[in-house]
Design a protein around this nucleic acid. Structure first.
Lengths: 342, 342
DNA sequence: GAAAAAAATGTAATCGTTTACATAGAAAGA
DNA sequence: TCTTTCTATGTAAACGATTACATTTTTTTC
């Protein structure tokens, strides 16, 4: 026989399709013996629930969507994994879209998701150009969660941290070590709000300390080890290289570390390097990378749990979580040469 | 007005729903002016295709599924990203399931996928216990692709490399350097076929060279930096530690490197360490990690492209690609102490 | 023990596309 | 000109679950 449907099951169990449907979704509504009878027939017939038909009928898919720039960032993957673990345990599969920092691609993927009537979406940021569209979506169409940053508008759900403050503090940390010539390298600062905020935090800290940001001290790289390496080489070839460089991602920082080793520059004796993310490798490179710890997995877990609560009508939101970040002072930052404050 | 459907579009354009449907899926079947008329109405009405209804009607979802143990492995993520990029560009979204090396979880996720009638599935290996079920699925239910290993049965699609041979060669490389006391550390060798094969390759190389595998020289760890570190400590505390250790993943190897540094053991002077995967970090640690390069992205691209071809009925398969791997000799392996063969 | 309330179950319309099949009109072949 | 063959389009029956509403059965209340 062809695959059995609830109609077949209903007939065999001597009940209506409504009852079979309820056995699937609201078993508590059924009398225990009816439930058992239906379940027995299902088992015996190897019934497989047709999620397409169910979603279609309910006019809402039970799939969730996650938008993130790239799974290559180990830290963002950490968010994705934790998120998936939580929503998965509640039976929600998740479609992951890597937007690859491509504005157009992101738009296309969002259209695809709208066509599928996902029940909820998560955004680990988005391209600045698509923000208005995405906020409209979050307002009118489905529950959405924004991760990895805070939002000023309190009508949206977010689980993030203060990117501005995190970078302000790390910059301050470098200043307190005695550095005056500090450079900053972001990735896609013009297209990703959280990176822009990081740069702003750095700027503000410099300003507040009365320090100059020299020509060429703010750079924008592509994300990835190789690009960190390339940036570092550029700095090293400057007539007046900075005494400390703050990279807005650990990947960049570790690439820079690699460039230093190749160039025979000692870290932190000759130059200080700081990162951002606290990826697992950060404490395993040598010297251990001084960086800012981002609570990636926790953001994923919280967003996932809140989404479940929203979908189950347990809570309404909006949910807004601002998580703390921590400066992980390890081995790559020290006072600048010829400076013995202590 | 509520969201327009093809019925609305059909009315407004003065055509039948069949024509609208064709405008969406087979535009070449329509007369150019009819097509334009329909498309204009769609644009003007902000029509959004209802993929749930479409999939339901077609009795086949246009979503693909990817099963992998964990996105924490940077190299496996590389496969996922490449795969996603290819199938995404053809309009196929992808549901990613991280099975977390959990047999039961993997089974549950597979059931969920069957309920959704995915049009195809990719497996970066699977738990040994679930192999029979999954092969049945691949045989009867939908196109499936197996990645990261070769298969003996030529009726399935795979894009992989020879795990046995790769490890045989790396072990041979260590033997050729003069090592006799070589240890091997896998992760989940009893549950993941490709890891088991790696171990077998190591065993065979040792046997062929007439070397003994001492007590405690084959270990099984959990995947992750920390566990590599822990394993290394265990080896270092042995009365007769090996002179070389081959870790079946770079994460483990880099964790081990870290343990050596902490213990004041020099690599490769005091002990040689080899990895497997060639993750991006491998060449950025110090000393550069000697490892086996796995063509992760390429496997993803090939599998994705073949799947598209199958779904479009361009080719039929089965597809079987055995890709070459390469030993990346870097800085962590050298002849053992007191041995000057050259 | 009758009425009211609650629990369990049934009826049947509904969701929006797809597609096999039918048909009309145009082009090609005789 | 009359078939025959294409091409473009229309008709309408699926697909399989959900759920508002109706009905029956059971329990509670007085």
């Amino acid at each position: 026989m062809a695959k059995p449907t609830i109609v077949d099951i209903a007939k065999l169990a001597g009940v209506s399709t409504a009852t079979v449907s309820r056995a699937l979704r609201e078993p508590h509504m059924l009398a225990p013996d009816t439930l058992k009878r239906v379940q027995d027939v299902m088992a015996q017939q190897h019934y497989i629930y047709n999620a397409m038909a169910g979603d279609f009928s309910r006019r809402k898919s039970s799939v969730l969507g996650l938008f993130m720039p790239t799974a290559e960032s180990a830290k963002i993957s950490g968010t994705a994994i934790a998120l998936q673990e939580v929503v998965g345990s509640h039976g929600f599969p998740i479609i992951i879209s890597n937007t690859l920092f491509d504005e157009q691609l992101e738009r296309e993927q969002i259209i695809k998701c709208r066509e599928r009537s996902l029940s909820g979406m998560f955004f680990v940021g988005c391209m600045l150009e698509n923000e208005p569209m995405i906020f409209n979506l979050a307002k009118d169409e489905l529950p959405a969660f924004f991760l990895w940053d805070t939002l000023d508008d309190t009508s949206y759900n977010y689980v993030g941290f203060d990117n501005f403050d995190a970078c302000y503090r790390m910059t301050r940390y470098l200043i307190d070590l005695g550095h005056k010539d500090i450079a900053f390298v972001g990735a896609m600062a013009q297209h990703v709000r959280r990176v822009y905020k990081r740069q702003s935090g750095y700027r503000q800290a410099m300003r507040d300390a009365g320090l100059n940001i020299h020509q060429g001290y703010i750079q924008d790289a592509l994300p990835g080890l190789e690009f960190g390496k390339a940036e570092m080489k550029t700095f090293l070839s400057m007539p007046n290289p900075p005494t400390a460089i703050f990279f807005a991602s650990d990947m960049l920082a570790i690439g820079a570390l690699s460039a230093c080793r190749e160039a025979g520059i000692r870290v932190p004796e000759d130059i200080s390097i700081a990162g951002f993310d606290n990826i697992e490798f950060a404490e395993h490179v040598y010297p251990g990378l001084t960086t800012v710890n981002v609570p990636a997995a926790e953001m994923g877990r919280i967003a996932g749990q809140c989404m479940i609560d929203i979908l189950r009508h347990k809570k309404r939101g909006p949910f807004q979580y601002k998580l703390p970040v921590e400066i992980m002072a390890r081995g790559t930052c020290a006072p600048p040469k010829g400076n013995c404050r202590v």
